[in-house]
């Protein structure tokens, strides 16, 4: 089989450039295989994150030919091989080295979210149909590709005012948990700025787990925020009774 030519970003916070590598292609090969080949034969210090190599851990995110992908699930036979394949780090996060980016901001946002809080005296029984709805959100492997493509973060750099799709998915999983008794709409409205999302669905398009981020997580959460804060009757009741909605 022929060789493929790669152009891979090599560099760090101070800058870098695309460096060319040739890699022999094997049947069924994915881009991560090629990166490993380059490490073993040409560039032992090529920085790459990876773990499971089976699309379950969300470590190996990068931009392949400009498209945000898990490199372990990007098949070489799905890419045009008559031109070089470019592999670059996720653009929305600061580069540490080569394809490795600083995603620590995500972990800081995550800390702001109040945990699952069961209602008092709850009976631990649930219907599979109610569980199904929430399990969709819990499929998230935290690859942060949705954060990477979200234009609020990517183009407008609003990380200080906006949580991003990953954390709307996480909150949807908590808010729609059949036994959870807490409301997180104040957090969504203020600190995580869900109003900044104008539902362009870029996040949904890149999700490797096929989570319907916009339709099933963000829009229902936006509706909850509207109900709680902009419906005059509810607003009045909330003033009277406090924040709980369930």
């Amino acid at each position: 089989m022929p060789d493929a030519t790669f152009k891979i970003f090599r560099g760090d916070r101070g800058g870098g450039k695309l460096v060319e590598y040739n890699v022999p292609i094997a049947t069924g090969m994915v881009v991560l295989d090629a990166l490993h080949y380059i490490q073993a034969h040409q560039a032992p210090d090529l920085a790459v994150r990876w773990n499971c190599k089976a699309g379950k851990c969300g470590s190996c995110s990068a931009e392949v030919n400009g498209r945000p992908r898990l490199t372990c699930k990007t098949r070489m036979d799905a890419l045009p091989l008559n031109e070089p394949i470019t592999v670059q780090p996720m653009k929305s996060f600061p580069v540490i080295r080569d394809l490795v980016t600083d995603v620590s901001w995500n972990y800081r946002v995550n800390r702001m979210i109040p945990p699952f809080t069961p209602r008092a005296d709850v009976e631990w029984k649930m219907d599979q149909r109610d569980v199904d709805r929430v399990q969709e959100f819990r499929k998230c492997i935290e690859c942060f590709l949705c954060q990477n493509v979200c234009h609020v973060l990517r183009d407008h750099d609003k990380g200080e005012q906006f949580g991003g799709p990953r954390f709307f998915v996480r909150i949807a999983g908590l808010e729609m948990h059949p036994l959870d008794g807490l409301s997180r709409t104040d957090l969504l409205k203020d600190a995580l700025g869900i109003g900044l999302c104008n539902i362009t669905k870029c996040c949904t398009e890149v999700c490797p787990e096929d989570i319907q981020i916009t339709d099933n997580a963000i829009i229902p959460l936006k509706e909850r925020v509207v109900d709680d804060y902009y419906d005059p009757v509810r607003w009045f009741l909330r003033k009277l009774k406090g924040k709980k909605r369930k």
């Binding site: 029984k125 569980v131 948990h177």
Partner: peptide, 15 residues
């Protein structure tokens, strides 16, 4: 684990 928020598949009686 369930009380900390894990969501397991359910039996028809909800367990």
């Amino acid at each position: 684990l369930e009380q900390w928020g894990a969501l397991f598949d359910r039996t028809s009686s909800g367990d």
